Simulated scan of single mutants.
Amino acid sequence: MSLVVFLLMPQVHLLDVAGPALVFSTADDLGYPHTLAYVAEASLVLSAQGLALQAQTGWPRLASGDLIIVPGRGGQAPPISRETLRRLRGHHAAGGTVAGEYGGADGRAVTTAGVAGGIDLALHLLGVRHGPYAAGRVARALLGPALGEGTAARLSPMLRPRSHMDESVHRIQDLIESRFTERLPLRLLAKAAGCSERTVTRLFRQATGLTPLAYQTSLRLERAEHLLRRGATTEVAAREVGFGDTRTLRRLRARAASPEGNPSRRNT
């Protein structure tokens, strides 16, 4: 279980605290464990919107896998103390990640811009740790299927074809997403949609632009890429996502890297 520490400073913007906190608490509800803590230089912190927030003045013990988030503040905010800056630098130097809102950074110092940018920032950090599928699940839980195209495209294939209003197809997608590593016969998808097997592919393609198999394959490939980025071998990644052999995974990865584009956008 990782610890997410919010550093609350005077004139902090409420949305910049609440947005990321909601992302990580929702992730915890969905089975991606996180513990949230709120620290400050004083026990009461006046926000830029006039609401006082309570925080602990003692810092918890941090490990390299833990995260510190520094929410954005109003223009008249006082500077951060030297002791607090020392803690931030020390956590980063020890291999931890420090994330803030407004400004520029690199490596394990991550920043975003914009009033609501903290939500995107938290989803990005969640995706780095648990994979785009996890970030996509949390985004759907927070925002529903009709996400903005830009946000959806950055997170996961499971969000890109979710802007339709066909409830039967949403049920099929829910089933595929929950069991994408398994073999899913057409009769099972038809049962979930409440229609005939003949109708499943037609409805799915009309709503999403994909066949059910192409949708499942895109989720498998996405998960495999996440495992490979985290050090898994091709053999392990292929097995974990349900491909029969490594040749299938290699072929799909090569196709995704080709000028023809990502296989998640293909119809066959």
Rank of each mutant, 00 (worst) to 15 (best):
M158E: 14
P79H: 00
V98R: 07
L213M: 09
G74I: 08
T208K: 00
S196G: 11
A105P: 02
I119K: 01
A27K: 05
Q76T: 06
F180R: 03
A27T: 03
H164T: 08
V128R: 15
M165C: 09
S168E: 14
S178R: 14
P79I: 05
A254C: 00
E177G: 05
A153D: 09
P79M: 08
F243L: 11
G107H: 05
A116P: 12
M9V: 04
P161I: 02
V12G: 10
K191S: 14
L30Y: 10
M165Q: 15
S81Y: 06
G117N: 03
A135T: 04
Q49I: 02
H92P: 09
L147V: 03
R205F: 14
G19W: 09
R73E: 04
L123Q: 04
A113P: 07
G136F: 09
A55T: 06
S81L: 07
S2V: 09
N262E: 15
L88R: 09
R179Q: 14
L123H: 09
P185W: 13
V115P: 12
R255G: 04
I69K: 00
A55R: 04
I119V: 15
G261T: 08
H92T: 07
A214V: 04
R61Q: 14
G242C: 09
T181R: 11
G242M: 03
D16Y: 09
H13F: 13
L44M: 03
D28F: 04
L85I: 07
E101T: 11
A105F: 13
G118K: 06
L15C: 11
E240I: 04
S47D: 00
A193Y: 12
I68V: 14
S218R: 02
G50M: 02
L36W: 13
T151C: 03
G231P: 08
S168P: 14
T248M: 04
L227T: 00
E149Q: 08
S264L: 11
G65Y: 10
L203Y: 15
H226G: 03
Y32V: 05
A94R: 06
R137L: 13
A256E: 07
L53N: 00
A42M: 00
S25M: 07
F204T: 01
M1W: 14
P145S: 07
T208Y: 05
A93F: 11
L227C: 11
A254Q: 10
A190T: 02
A63P: 00
E101M: 13
L221Q: 09
E260N: 01
R265H: 15
T199F: 13
Q56F: 09
S168C: 11
